[in-house]
Structure formats: C-alpha cells, structure tokens
Amino acid sequence: MFNYFPGNYMWSSAVMLSLMAGGDLGQIDRWLAPLREADTDVDGWTKAWDSAGAQQVEHAEDDLRRGYRRSASARYLRASNYYLTGERQTPPGPAKIHSYQCGLTAFAKAVEYMPRPLERVEIDSPDGVLPGYLIPARDRRGPAPIVIFYNGFDVTKELLYGFIGEEFSDRGIACLVIDTPGTGEPLRLRNVASRPDYEVPTAAIVDYLETRPDIDRTRIGLLGISLGGYYAPRGASFEHRIKACAAWGGVWDYGAVWQHRWATRSKTTSVPFWQLPWVMGTETMEQALQRVQQWTLADALPHLTQPLLIVHGEDDGAIPLSDARKAFHAAGSSDKELRVFTVAAGDGGVEHCNADDPDPARQLIADWFAEHL
C-alpha cells in the first residue's frame, strides 16, 4: 500500500480510500503534507481535510458564476469526499458533525449540477428512514435490474457513490447507495446503532424497490464493502428476493476480528478504537466487544443459496484472507466464486477492499452482476 503517512496505517489507508472514491492526490497533498512530519494530531487532521473540502467548494462556486455546471459538480463531489474522509477519523462531537454536514451539503450540490442527477430516496424501515441515492441505469428501456450497495464499518453512501460511480449504470443496471443501521445518517444524525440481523433492513429496502415501476423486482442484487461483506451476505442469506450477492472484502467472524484488534492494540485498523462502541451503540469498549460477537456468518451462510462473489486482497491488513475462505466454503450457493487479488499476479489491489488498486476489483464486480442479474 502507498504509505502517504509512513508508519501510520490508519491515516495512510484513509488517503487511499479518498483516492479510491475519486480524490486527487495533488489536492490532498496540498493540505496534508504538513502533517507527514508532525506528531499525530486529530484536530490537525480534521482541519486539513475540512480545508481541502472548503477550497473545492470555493472553486465550485467560481465555476457556477461562470456557468460551468459540470465542472462545479465535479468540484463539489471532491469536496464531499474530503470532508467525509476527515470526518471518519474525527471523534463524535461538534467538529465531526460540522465535517459531516459539510460533506452532505457538498454532495447534494454535486447531485444538483450533475448532467444525469441521482435520485435521493428515503425508505421506511423498523430503524426509521434509510436514506440513499439511486443511480439510474443508462439507456435502459423498461424496468432495470438493480444492485443495492451497503456501507462498511466507517463509510457513507456519498463515498459509496465515489467507489462505484457509473459502472453499474453503464451496464444497464441501476444502483442504490444507501445508509443503513450503524452507518451514515442513521448513526450520525439519529444515533441508530448497527444490528446483526441485516435481513431486516434488507427486507425493507426490497419492499420499497418492488413498488417502483422502473425496477425489475426479479433482478435485485446486493453488494457490501468492508463490513458490508457481513451485512450483504447476512441479508441475502435470509432474504431470498435478493438474486445475487457480492462481498467486496470477505468477512467471517467480525467479533473475533475485534477481539484480536483490541487484545493486540492493532496498528492496522482503519479507524480509531472508539468507533466500535459508537457503531455498536454501547457505552464501553467491553460492552461493544461483547455485542459484536453476534456479527458472525457461521449460522447464516448455509442459508445463502443465490450466486455469490467474494473479492479479497491477499495482504488485507484489516480482515485476514482466511476469513474470506471460511465464508466462501460455508456458503450454501452452488454458484460461488472467491476472487483473491495477489502480489505475484500483479492484477489489482491486494490490500483491504483492494484500495491500493481498486479499479480491477470494481470492474470485476460490475461485470459479475451484469452476468448474474
């Protein structure tokens, strides 16, 4: 992995994730370079990313004054990326809320000026409203297949859009990037913690999609990235209206992963340790470690009979490759594939969620869904 911050996996992985979502290294370096030689400073981190975002907003506003709507949209999209990248490492409090709100506002502006605007949707569920953006299928006549795209442990629907862009759309498939329990707006604005039984929000989302005349209810896929590699297979295991499922990063026993991280004080986590109690909805780390033990696919995956794709990097520092192999072997599907990107092959990203070279995995996932929906 490109270690922009030598010796700091957390911050370096954040830079890689920003680039994966469409960030520009030159723009990032303009604001983060002073932090490379300094001691770890969370306030400095937040201010640097906020400044990067604010500069892009200023440029977008200049573009609008000149009538350059498409350029402005691209600027706003990068601004949202930078605000939300900094927000991931910022502990709960006013600074975090400020960055997050700025990220939401910039993304909404980007959507407003896109040549083919996304549709914001709000889906009723047992956990309250689940907000998302629907990316329409390009040049499609009649109802389109769709892929629901789930967040992981620490990203948002806005970053999901950066990860996938128009790849599904260009293949005639709609895509719904959505915040679900324990992620994005539900967590940050309404304190809705995660839940192990992700078939519940999955069912609510499918119920909604079945009401739309522009969506083919018989061709609904489900994709999850990072911890979404738990959420998506769990949802598909017990919601068989999902016709194909992919995990962009395999997960097996997330509780065991966190027990190891905490016991060893792991240096290869993508976010600070405070994130686990926050996402789990607990007061203490000990309570969170107890609760996260429910996040295992051992009992769920034998029920997954739909086509399944698991994509994993050989040198994933967050989730071991052995976990992806266990998930693959446990899945009940007769049509299943484990695609491991390796160092020797040099065929794509080998780190967590292929963030060090994401496009080969992104293309593979989109092509696989085009084949299976």
Results as ranks from 00 to 15, higher is better:
Phe107Glu: 02
Ile173Asp: 03
Ala95Arg: 15
Pro131Ser: 10
Trp31Ser: 07
Arg88Glu: 07
Asp216Phe: 00
Glu166Cys: 07
Leu297Asn: 11
Ile173Ala: 05
Ala144Val: 08
Gly86Asn: 05
Trp11Gln: 14
Arg120Ala: 10
Arg339Glu: 14
Gln306Pro: 02
Tyr68His: 15
Ser237Met: 06
Ala318Gln: 10
Asp253Arg: 09
Ala330Pro: 05
Glu87Gln: 12
Met285Gln: 14
Glu337Tyr: 13
Arg261Thr: 06
Val279Ile: 15
Gly313Pro: 05
Glu286Asp: 13
Pro136Trp: 12
Glu112Gly: 11
His59Ala: 12
Phe153Ala: 05
Tyr133Trp: 10
Gly165Cys: 07
Ala54Ile: 03
Ile164Asn: 13
Arg241Phe: 09
Gly346Asn: 01
Gly346Asp: 00
Pro233Trp: 01
Met1Leu: 08
Glu337Val: 15
Gly86Tyr: 02
Thr40Glu: 14
Ala288Gln: 10
Leu276Glu: 08
Leu32His: 02
Arg171Val: 06
Glu337Arg: 15
Gln290Lys: 08
Tyr113Ser: 10
Arg339Gln: 15
Ser12Trp: 00
Phe2Glu: 12
Pro131Leu: 09
Ala54Val: 12
Lys326Cys: 06
Glu185Phe: 08
Phe168Gln: 01
Ala263Leu: 10
Arg120Pro: 06
Val177Cys: 15
Tyr161Arg: 13
Ala14Cys: 14
Val251Ala: 01
Thr264Asn: 12
Glu185Lys: 06
Cys353Lys: 02
Tyr83Glu: 11
Glu61Tyr: 08
Ser237Glu: 04
Ser18His: 02
